[in-house]
């Protein structure tokens, strides 16, 4: 869970960096998208690196989902079914973060979004705002529609929460939280990464929606 999660967070950060290229203009953005396919040449064949990344990502996502399902099912059994306490006076726990609360369902939301996202921008199967050959145009066409931006925003907030608890939890699981100082630092780091990812991903769509990028 922790390892796959960290790989995915790493990917998110790289992805976000790529997205921000949109502010450098259509040419730079498209060049970046093409460059990804040529990455590693001539050592690797065309799109070779991309495929390696894709395979690693796919394994990570599947591994992450498997681990999540496993944890959920163990927790479900350990809690003794759905109805645990009759008292509803402490539904939100003593100190738990909202991020930890939304981890599982948030993960499902993210999964659905990723499928939609791939259909839209990667595989070019659905085209809100009109089809286009170049990635830049697909992005710009799509994010001129407010509903697309809204869906994207919801997904990114879910990602933010997920990353907030995920970063903290992954590093704790890997043994980085061995003092109260480390705990404070990890929490700051988790908030920072989550904030960075959320804001970083949300900048391009809003810039497009409000016409700063066209």
């Amino acid at each position: 869970m922790a390892v796959t999660g960290l790989i995915l967070i790493g990917y998110l950060l790289a992805h976000m960096y790529g997205n921000l290229k949109i502010f450098a203009g259509a040419e730079a953005f498209n060049e970046y998208a093409h460059h990804l396919r040529a990455l590693g040449e001539p050592l690797l064949p065309h799109t070779g690196a991309l495929w390696i990344i894709r395979v690693v990502l796919l394994i990570s996502v599947l591994g992450h989902m498997y681990a999540a399902f496993n944890l959920w099912s163990r927790a479900h059994k350990a809690r003794g079914g759905t109805r645990r306490y009759y008292s509803h006076k402490s539904r939100t726990g003593v100190q738990r973060t909202y991020a930890s609360f939304t981890l599982r369902w948030g993960g499902v939301v993210i999964l659905l979004f990723v499928i939609y996202h791939l259909l839209h921008l990667t595989w070019n199967i659905i085209h809100p705002g009109g089809a286009a050959a170049e990635p830049y145009d697909r992005v710009v066409n799509g994010f001129q529609i407010w509903s697309v931006v809204l869906a994207y925003t919801i997904a990114m907030i879910a990602v933010g929460f997920h990353v907030r608890h995920g970063t903290w939890s992954a590093l704790t699981t890997l043994g980085a939280n061995t003092s109260s100082l480390a705990r404070r630092r990890l929490n700051v780091l988790a908030y920072a990464v989550a904030g960075l990812v959320t804001v970083g991903f949300l900048l391009p769509p809003f810039a497009i929606l409000f016409g700063f990028v066209s």
């Binding site: 496993n70 944890l71 163990r74 927790a75 059994k77 350990a78 809690r79 726990g93 003593v94 100190q95 738990r96 973060t97 930890s100 981890l103 608890h165 903290w168 939890s169 704790t172 699981t173 939280n177 061995t178 003092s179 109260s180 480390a182 705990r183």
Partner: peptide
């Protein structure tokens, strides 16, 4: 169950066993 580092355990622990 498996631990997902939520921290409720430490918060109710009468002896405040550190989460670390």
């Amino acid at each position: 169950g498996g631990c997902t580092n939520i921290g409720e355990c430490t918060a109710v622990c009468p002896k405040a066993i550190p989460f670390e």
